[in-house]
Amino acid sequence: MAISPAVLVTVFGLLGDIISFFVCLAPIPTFVRIYKRKSSEGYQSIPYVIALFSAMLWIYYALVRKHAVLLITINTFCCVIQIFYISFYLFYAPKKEKTLTVKFVLFVDVFAFGLIFLLTYFLTHGIKRVQVLGYICMVFALCVFVAPLGIIRKVIKTKSAEFMPFGLSFFLTLSAVMWFFYGLLLKDMNVALPNVLGFIFGVLQMILYMIYKKPGTKVLEPSGIKLQDISEHVVDVVRLSSMVCSSQMRALVPQDSADMEATIDIDEKIKGDFVKIKDDK
């Protein structure tokens, strides 16, 4: 029994929603790490700002196009979670990164989206508005997939995949596959085409992760220095400092003959201990 295209569209749309849900949650380990370190230094906010902008555009596109409820549901959730990520990043970001992120959010998510909304709403109508919005969404969907290029460059430069979570790359690749077939069956190339690039970048990120993944390493004690040697040197320094201090005190404080003899006895004892330590070593 053949499955109708409408059923396949719904199936791939639901799978796309489910996997995209996990894509949205994939950065959580990154933010757990930021919370533990109490600093977002080393991470970038650009992918989350662009992802928020893209989700806002797709909601607008789905509302204008109509009959695209699955696009509305997942992108609404994406908006909420990206706002949370950006807020969390700002809380732990250094002052410079915090300022840049705020400026970027205002420019992209407020000014750019507002401009697109006003121009398409007042200057285009009907099918023309759908086409224009579709092209814009396609361009910025490509930007979402291109945004991790900065992280890819950093991974290659540092030869470390610390700042590129594997889970995010994996779910992005699966999501790209599902949304490609969803757009293809729906005959909406604005949805299908960007996900071809998304699939390519997702596979590339996973390959780089496997190449540059580094197992956890322990901080080893240098072989040439032993803890026992360090402790003995500390003892020597402490005893030597007491000898110097006692000599300085004798020079500064007048002493009678009894005190002088007691001090000499103490000094001799300290010197004897010092020579004994040296002999033992």
Score class of each variant (00 low, 15 high):
Val9Trp: 07
Lys36Trp: 09
Lys96Pro: 00
Val32Arg: 12
Phe31Ala: 00
Ile81Gly: 00
Tyr61Trp: 06
Val69Pro: 00
Pro94Asp: 15
Ser40Pro: 03
Ala62Ser: 15
Pro47Arg: 10
Val32Lys: 09
Ser54Asn: 15
Ala51Met: 07
Ala62His: 02
Pro29His: 10
Val64Cys: 02
Lys36Thr: 09
Met56Asn: 12
Met56Trp: 01
Ile19Ser: 15
Leu63Ser: 07
Trp58Val: 09
Leu63Phe: 13
Ser54Gln: 08
Phe88Cys: 09
Glu97Ser: 13
Phe12Asn: 07
Ser45Asp: 13
Glu41Cys: 01
Glu97Trp: 01
Gly13Asp: 04
Tyr60Trp: 06
Gly16Leu: 10
Tyr35Lys: 11
Val11Asp: 03
Gly16Lys: 06
Ala68Met: 10
Ile19Thr: 15
Phe91Pro: 00
Pro27Arg: 03
Leu71Asp: 11
Gly16Val: 12
Phe12Gln: 10
Ala6Trp: 11
Tyr35Val: 07
Tyr61Ala: 02
Pro27Lys: 04
Val11Pro: 00
Leu100Glu: 14
Ala93Pro: 01
Phe53Asp: 03
Cys79Tyr: 05
Gly16His: 12
Met56Ile: 07
Gln82Phe: 02
Asp17Phe: 13
Tyr48Glu: 09
Gln82Val: 04
Lys38Val: 03
Ile34Trp: 02
Val11His: 05
Ala6His: 11
Phe53Arg: 01
Thr76Pro: 00
Ile3Arg: 08
Gln82Tyr: 05
Thr73Glu: 08
Thr99Met: 09
Ile46Ala: 14
His67Asp: 15
Leu8Gln: 10
Cys79Ala: 10
Val23Ser: 12
Tyr43Ala: 03
Ile83Arg: 01
Asp17Ile: 07
Ile3Trp: 13
Asp17Leu: 14
Trp58Glu: 03
Leu15Pro: 03
Ala55Tyr: 04
Ile18Gln: 08
Leu52Gln: 02
Leu15Gln: 09
Ile59Val: 15
Pro29Asn: 13
Cys78Leu: 06
Ala62Arg: 03
Lys95Cys: 09
Phe91Arg: 09
Lys66Thr: 14
Tyr48Ile: 00
Pro5Glu: 12
Ile50Arg: 00
Leu57Tyr: 07
Ile74Val: 13
Tyr89Ser: 01
Tyr60Lys: 04
Ile28Met: 14
Ile46Met: 14
Ser4Pro: 01
Trp58Asn: 06
Ser87Asp: 03
Phe21Val: 06
Ile18Cys: 15
Phe22Gly: 12
Lys96Leu: 12
Ser87Gln: 04
Thr10Val: 07
Phe91Ser: 06
Phe53Gly: 03
Ser87Met: 12
Asn75Phe: 10
Gly13Tyr: 02
Ser20Val: 08
Arg33Asp: 15
Thr10His: 11
Thr101His: 09
Cys24His: 03
Lys95His: 11
Leu15Thr: 04
Tyr89Glu: 08
Leu90Ile: 11
